[in-house]
């Protein structure tokens, strides 16, 4: 493919050059002003509003690709690490009394279930060895055991509740809280988890019961569940309030 040639006057050459460079400089200005504008926008949970809008828009797109059939890759038991990383202790304040613990499930206003650990352990047990992914960028193959949230919901007649959009989870001290969308909660790999590496959950991993939700980043795997509730609006979320994406789906 040959280049086209043209004969033009000096004046035309100058004019063409000036026009092109003017557009170029204006576009640089637009980019700089746009960047400054973006960073000056009112805050929406720790990030400028327009960016928050795009994150929500991304959620709209990528949640359409979500399927219960898309499973997190699982590994043989031997691949699970023995030393499981502990990355945070928000919501795990001292003074917690395990003997008094019961899982609170708010089915509707005024209708709250209190469920003991033994009752939860009596439900069908599911184990999973998967690559736990932290939003910081590290991951670790870890082994967990518990009851599928979907099995739990069936057993406790939460059918109408699981038609809602979100599940909220809060630690007993209310220091950590997350909201997860219902499809992710009902995913076949999502567990109310009471075992790690075949033994009861260690205290710093959220004894007696934590969430394991492999279709989300670690920030959504709340440790030491106190209360579970259902909502059509987004429940409060600890890291969402600190600038992170609400969806955090993998």
């Amino acid at each position: 493919m040959p280049f086209k040639e043209e004969l033009i006057s000096e004046k035309q050459l100058k004019k063409k050059t000036i026009i092109s460079f003017s557009v170029f400089i204006v576009m640089i200005a637009v980019a700089v002003i746009g960047w400054k504008w973006l960073n000056k926008q009112p805050d929406d949970n720790g990030t400028p509003k327009p960016i928050r809008k795009v994150l929500n828009y991304n959620e709209g797109i990528f949640s359409k690709l979500y399927s219960h059939n898309h499973l997190a890759k699982t590994f043989p038991l031997s691949a699970a690490v023995k030393k499981v990383r502990v990355n945070g202790s928000d919501g795990m304040s001292a003074g917690f009394d395990p003997s008094a613990w019961k899982l609170k499930v708010a089915r509707s206003p005024g209708d709250t279930l209190f469920i003991t650990l033994d009752e939860i352990k009596a439900l069908p047990k599911t184990e999973i060895v998967f690559d736990f992914k932290c939003i910081e960028g590290w991951s670790q193959v870890t082994h967990w055991g518990g009851v599928k949230f979907s099995d739990f919901a069936k057993k406790y007649n939460l059918t109408s509740q699981t038609q809602m959009n979100y599940v909220g989870l809060i630690t007993p001290d209310k220091g950590y809280y997350v909201g997860n969308d219902m499809p992710a909660m009902m995913h076949p790999q999502t567990l109310l988890c009471y075992e790690m590496n075949g033994a009861p959950l260690p205290m710093n991993q959220g004894y007696p019961l934590r969430l394991i939700i492999p279709v989300k980043y670690g920030i959504k795997h709340l440790k030491r569940i106190g209360t579970v509730f259902f909502s059509n609006e987004r429940p409060a979320d600890f890291w969402y309030e600190r600038g992170y994406d609400y969806y955090a789906g993998l």
């Binding site: 990528f62 997190a72 890759k73 992914k133 960028g137 991951s139």
Partner: peptide, 20 residues
């Protein structure tokens, strides 16, 4: 970004950590 939804892609790239 979506290692579970694009499980297949993630696997052929050598897994999550290799892809990163």
């Amino acid at each position: 970004y979506k290692p579970v939804q694009f499980n297949f892609l993630c696997n052929i790239l050598g897994g999550y950590e290799w892809a990163r």
